[in-house]
């Protein structure tokens, strides 16, 4: 699919030419999607409003650089996820310290998730699992992180991803595999108990 000929492309060109009504149309078309992405990641309605405003402000100021290689939604999705991670880095909400090692509790979870262990305890703390997912994803390059999110969280198929990003299906598969491996290795590395928490 050519992203330069869709009605969406027409809308983008109008915004690039300074048409404010077209920008409003973009905001209204994608605001719900952007809110859902942010809420999925942060689970906070208050922060969602602030970040969504920032997302569309970024869209406004950088749309002149939009090159039609991906769909507009894919581009907005990337900006949104980036803003969420920016927010997490700045606020370190719920004590998510990305540069730090994992907590003992998280190490336990990761060890429990190691392959070959049939008796993995059920992890019912959804919030903690979400934090863990975010923490692991923070260790991936943005492109791989966004692809994994589009596949696993947004539920897009490989064909859809190829169409959305303008990257061919095989390359998408290779990138996804690499991302999954990195995520797995990051989990393994960080799950290894540090000397202070080895006992027990």
């Amino acid at each position: 699919m050519d992203h330069r000929t869709s009605d969406e492309a027409e809308l983008v060109r109008r915004v690039q030419a300074g048409d404010e009504a077209a920008f409003r149309e973009i905001v209204e078309r994608y605001q719900s999607k952007v809110f859902s992405i942010i809420y999925g990641i942060l689970r906070s309605h208050n922060d969602a409003e602030d970040i969504a405003q920032q997302v569309f402000s970024k869209v406004y100021f950088s749309i002149k650089n939009f090159d039609f290689r991906s769909s507009l939604l894919t581009w907005i999705y990337k900006i949104t996820v980036n803003e969420c991670y920016d927010y997490l880095r700045k606020r370190k909400v719920r004590k998510l310290v990305y540069e730090s090692e994992f907590t003992e509790d998280e190490s336990q979870r990761l060890k429990a998730g190691e392959p070959g262990r049939d008796q993995a305890p059920p992890i019912d703390d959804v919030l903690a699992r979400r934090d863990l997912a975010l923490k692991l994803l923070a260790r991936l390059p943005a492109e791989e992180r966004d692809l994994l999110l589009l596949k696993e969280v947004e539920g897009h198929s490989i064909e859809e991803l190829a169409e959305m990003t303008g990257i061919n299906e095989n390359t998408i598969k290779v990138k996804l595999f690499r991302a999954r491996q990195k995520l797995f290795k990051a989990a393994q590395r960080l799950a290894r108990p540090t000397p202070g928490m080895a006992a027990g």
């Binding site: 859902s36 809420y39 998730g113 392959p115 696993e152 969280v153 797995f184």
Partner: peptide
Amino acid sequence: AFRQQSALLKTLRCAEALSP
């Protein structure tokens, strides 16, 4: 392991339709 990872990532899904 990849299946577990996939399940972990799916916790970031937002089930509700939200609007500002």
